[in-house]
Structure formats: C-alpha cells, structure tokens
Design a protein around this nucleic acid. Structure first.
Lengths: 237, 237
DNA sequence: GGGTGTCATTGACGATCGTCAAATTGGCGT
DNA sequence: ACGCCAATTTGACGATCGTCAATGACACCC
C-alpha cells in the first residue's frame, strides 16, 4: 500500500490517508467509495448527529474537534470522547446497526468526511482489511476507555485535571516567551465531565493548580510555564 | 443459521453456540476451527494469561468467571472486566497483534475454549461474518465501558456498590425463604476496584448498606431481602 | 495448638468533594 | 455603552473519602 498522495482516492489528499480506514479499498471498489463519499462542514457548536439518530454511515474527522456526549434523562450529559482529525466517529452504531447512543457536536469549526451507510456496508462486507481497520479503531477506543477507568481509580482529581490540560496543551498550545498558551476548546462543565467531578470542583482545582504555579487561567485562555514542558513529553502515553 | 446443537462444530454443544463468534464458520472451514481448538480448565485463582504475555488466540469462557486486571508499576492493580460464560476474552490483543495488556484470572473454577492464533487468524481473514462478530464484541465492551464511565460521573459510590451487588445477585444468587443469597466471587479489594474507591471505603459502604436494610454481609456471603428484587429487575439496563 | 500470613474491619484525622445559594464575570445582541 | 443571559466563581456547610495505624477474623501450615 502506497503511503502518501493518491489522486484517485477520495481520501487521497487527506493528511491521515495512510492510517485511514479506507486506505486499503481496492481500486475496483474506489467507485463505490466515491459514490458514498461526502464532506460536511460544521461551525462551532453545531451537531453532527444527535442521540437517537439513525446511523448515516462512518464519519471521519478531517479538521477541527468533535465531542461525543451522552445525554441523560435528568437533562445532564457526560462527555465521553474527544475526536481529533484522523479519528473515526459513529462506528459503534454503524457496526451494531442501531441508532446513535451519543451526540456528536463540533467544539471547533470542523470538517467531516462521511461514507454513507449503504456503500460503507458493501465496502466492509467485501474487504476484510477495511473491517479489520475498523476493528482496530474499536480496540484503541477500548484502550482509551481503560486508561480513563484506571486514571479514575488511581489518580487524584487534581492530577487528572493536570494530565488533561497537558494533553490539550500538546495539541492546541503554541509556544511563546517561555510559555505555552492555548485557548481551551472546552467549557468548565466539559472539563468537569472529563475528569468526573462537578463544575464547582473544577473551579477549585484550577485555583489549586494556579497556586502550584502549574497553570494560569484567564477565562478560556490557559498558559503554563516552560517547566511543564518536561511533563508534556511524559504525557505522551 | 441453525440455532441449537450442531455435532460437527466444536462449539456445537455449547450453551452459547448461537451467539458464538465461531457459529458462522462455514462447513468447509470447520476443520481449521477444530485444528486450532482446545479446552482449558482453570481452578479458582489460576491465571489464564498474564500481562505482557504473547497472545495465544481467542478465548471464550464456557463456564465459571474470569477477571481481567491491569497491574500497575506500584504493585496495585485495577479490575477492568468480569467475563462470564459466553463472553470472549483476549480479542483486544488478538486484533491488534500485540501482547496482553491485562491479566486474566479465574475467580471461580472455570472452563475456557481457545482457538489458537494461527487458525483464528485464517478464520477471521477468510470470513467477514466472524470478524463482524468479533467487532460486535468490541462494541459491546465499549458500551460497557461507557456505562461504567457514566456511572462513575453520575452516581454515588454507595449507589454504584449497590448496583454492582444487584448485578452479581442476578447471576450468582439463589432464592430462599424470602431472600436472595450468594457467595461473593469477589474480594473486597476487587469490589473496591470495580467502583473506584479504596477497600476501607468499601467496608464503610457495606456498613451503610446494612444500616439501610438493603444487604446483609457475613464474610463473602451476602443476602438481600425480597424488596430488592424489584430493583433487581431494573438493574437489567 | 500455636504460628503466620492474608484479608477485612475499625478508629481517627485531615483533605476533598457535592450541594445550595449568592455573587461575579464574560459574551453577545441591540 | 447598555442590558441580558449563561457561564463561572466563591462561600459555607455537611458528607464522604483517603490515609495511616491498629485490631480482628480466618485459613493454612507446621
């Protein structure tokens, strides 16, 4: 399989082509892929699909950031996953042929590629490689869930918030004047969901991190001193 | 596909045959399935595989109960999953062709069926149905992880312990004299892992549940009054 | 029977968290 | 600039949790 540009393939110009679920679609089936292919532009806050929606196919984030949430009866919600460019969304309801159990919403202006359900079904049925790559995405989602469960059982809330901020810094941060800065793509409530506490607690954790000299907050703008860079490397995991 | 007994199939006599990953293996490939097939008997506390082991294939619990744990550097561990009869174990390292990230250990005397990696690979490559069923197992594991993450963010520790005990009662409990009784297959430390608290806290939660009149403990023997049966129905979820 | 180890419980303490209510801020439209 | 709504922060309080240390219970072995 050739890594890099491939003008005949819908994903051929995508930066994440080589790891794409569709990268191994054989030449003979590329037409089916093209038939089911469409691109979706989302503005910040716009929904890609809602909980209870019928599955429309397999989505792949091309640009931006998408949040997967589940809504509860009481009106609350829980942020389950952040999907960055190159990540696949909607494979759960696709594989189990049922309605979406989460809502997907853009946290930043985003571009999404969709392969419609009918054609995606044919491609998956006809090519073990494609299905195998989908399964690998499932496995890495399980891995991430396990990490989250382990972190919840192992680390303090403050540590988990710090880890989360470091990971976000790594993706969204820019370096300047001996500091890293970013605009948080998440609200305090989303932060609270991700580490499993109430939003008031997030405020207090932020105060403690500020006192520790680890992070400085001003609304959604966060900065960290260079000393944090060291831990930033370790936060790879 | 015929539901029920199938004498030509290694899983043909299994109570979970119809939902088995291997139930759709075509007649022509049954010989490969038989070649890779073996049965493993585990006594209580015995390990099926250890963290870091090379994957030996796809395991399916036929009888008993298996716990999947990840061991941490500090010597602690976290109980990630309980695998009951009919459930598949080891598919994560199988699908990603890497070593096990968890340890599997029998909590009760257990019987496990194994399809060796080489033959399982051929069967999975040659049959989309088999791979699709494996993927479905992945999806339901993701579902369970999500439920656990949501429960951790939504419910109190006491409620989570109560829910867990109810679920265990449903499987392991026997009814007698207006009560449900069971022998807990889990240590207090395992209970603590599953709800994400320290073992001392489990002791205190147990005291509170006792005071509430919800559960009565005597070592590993637990009983609950009939009133709990109502919630037992709801705990299906 | 006594020893020994693991598992489980209890007590005491400080730290942290959830909750409710009130105050403050920030963003955004007019 | 103003007003307004939602998001965020703060304060106060009780409840809960983690930690450390000590005790108790139990099985197992010699």
């Amino acid at each position: 399989m050739s890594v890099g540009l491939n003008p005949d393939h819908p994903c051929g110009r995508c930066a994440y082509y080589s790891e794409s679920v569709w990268s191994s679609v054989k030449l003979g089936s590329v037409s089916a892929l093209q038939r089911g292919f469409s691109r979706i532009a989302l503005s910040e806050g716009q929904a890609l699909f809602s909980q209870g929606d019928r599955n429309r196919g397999i989505f792949c984030v091309s640009e931006g950031l998408v949040a997967l949430r589940t809504l509860h009866a009481e009106g609350t919600s829980t942020l389950i996953r952040l999907a960055y460019p190159g990540e696949v969304v909607g494979f759960r309801s696709f594989l189990s042929a049922r309605e979406h159990r989460t809502e997907a919403r853009a946290l930043l202006p985003s571009r999404i590629c969709l392969v419609g359900r009918r054609d995606a079904d044919h491609l998956v049925q006809g090519d073990t490689d494609v299905l195998m790559k989908l399964a690998s995405r499932c496995v890495s989602e399980i891995d991430q869930n396990h990490d989250r469960i382990i972190a919840a059982a192992t680390k303090s809330n403050k540590q988990r918030l710090s880890d989360l901020l470091l990971r976000l810094m790594k993706v969204h941060g820019t370096r300047a004047e001996g500091q890293i800065r970013m605009r948080l793509p998440l609200s305090r409530l989303d932060l609270a969901d991700l580490i499993g506490v109430q939003p008031e607690t997030v405020s207090r954790l932020i105060n403690r991190l500020r006192k520790d000299g680890a992070f400085f907050f001003s609304g959604r703008h966060v900065s960290a001193p260079l000393a944090m860079l060291v831990e930033l490397q370790n936060a790879a995991e």
